[in-house]
Amino acid sequence: MNEVNGLYIDMRGVVKRSDLEAEVTEALESSLTKIKRFLEGIRGVEISGYSIGIKWKGRDSISLRGLLEEINKKNERFVIVLDEVQSTRPPLSYELKNIIAYSYDNLENIVFILSGSEIGLLRDFLGYEDPSSPLYGRGVYEIVVERFTPELSREFLVRGFREEGLEPSLNVIEEAVSFFDGIPGWLTLFGRRYIEGVRDINSIKEEAIALALSELEKLGEREKLVLKAIAFGARSWSQVRDFILEKYGLALPKSTLSRLIDKLEKLGVVKNYEFLDQVYREATRRLIVKAT
């Protein structure tokens, strides 16, 4: 199999253009031994040993679009993975979509892979069916990683551990399969922590719950109220409304409540008034919320 050349960039916390430029520089440096030939001779790019410097501003500088144009001239496939890209906000998100659209139309050797854990928001970000989006009408190949079956979860863990020379007990594997409920990300977290030497599965569970809780705490108070209602058994629009009214004394208008539920589904936390995994259900139970 041919080696894939390119970059991986985690977009979480990338707020402005300078953040993106810093992440691109760091990603290029971390892969420098593999992609050095793509960068040699480009104006504004300085390579010294295993370090790289990019002049993004001022005289003899280069823009991100210009950098991609130069890399494209190497006539080799170059893949850029933008992870959790749906978390970006305007104006950066619009600039980023313009760069992707330009690359799609003009740079045949540049390939973008956009990934995210919140599929609904990722589709909203792309906007390939929205005439106002720079990516409107562009071809998109979508791959959705579905929840693993218990059998596939078990095989995923066993094979991964075998590659690392480990063979956890069947009880450990079964507990992980049961709790992480086929979610690839949580199973990967469990496997990585176990390989790193964490043998207390409860501590790994707590880490996963803490990660989920940190994400939920970023939501608005009313979104948290809806999640609380679902976590404690509400299974319909009216049950969610009644729970919030009875427990917090807040009457939400129908349109507001429907909008909140729709957003939570796009976030990939719930669907049809059910949590998509046990980790987020437990994290929601621990949320501290107040009616606003």
Rank of each mutant, 00 (worst) to 15 (best):
Y102T: 03
S61R: 07
K57W: 11
R193I: 08
D105R: 11
F38D: 00
R138I: 10
Y136I: 03
E142H: 12
S48F: 06
L126H: 08
G44I: 12
S115F: 14
L216Y: 05
F156L: 05
R199S: 06
E155F: 12
S63E: 12
R65W: 12
Y141L: 14
G58V: 13
S51L: 07
F243K: 05
F125H: 03
I110R: 03
E246I: 13
K34C: 10
E46T: 12
S63G: 10
K97G: 06
Y194R: 00
R77T: 15
K263E: 13
E217P: 01
L170E: 15
E221I: 10
V269M: 03
G44C: 09
F180D: 02
L227H: 03
V4M: 09
D105Y: 04
A234S: 09
G191L: 05
I54F: 01
F190W: 05
W237A: 11
K263T: 11
S93A: 14
A101W: 02
I209W: 00
T284W: 00
A229S: 07
D60E: 15
A229W: 01
V85H: 06
L250K: 05
V81L: 12
E70M: 12
V14H: 08
K97Y: 07
D242R: 15
Y136N: 07
D83H: 09
Y102V: 08
L64I: 14
K228C: 05
L287Y: 07
V81F: 13
I201Q: 02
A212P: 02
L227F: 04
P90A: 07
R193W: 00
L250I: 09
E163Y: 09
G120K: 02
Y8I: 08
R77S: 15
K247G: 07
S258P: 00
I54M: 01
E167G: 11
L211S: 03
R281T: 00
I99W: 05
E215F: 03
A251S: 09
P253W: 06
L287C: 07
A229M: 10
I35L: 04
R65Y: 11
G41F: 02
T88E: 01
Y104R: 02
K205H: 06
F125G: 02
R147C: 08
P150D: 10
P150N: 04
R192T: 11
I99A: 09
R77M: 14
Y8G: 07
G66Y: 09
E223M: 07
P131C: 03
I35C: 01
S133R: 03
Y104A: 06
N2D: 14
P253D: 04
L92Y: 11
K55Y: 02
S61P: 05
L189K: 04
A234P: 00
Y102A: 06
Q278F: 13
R89G: 03
R162T: 11
N2Q: 13
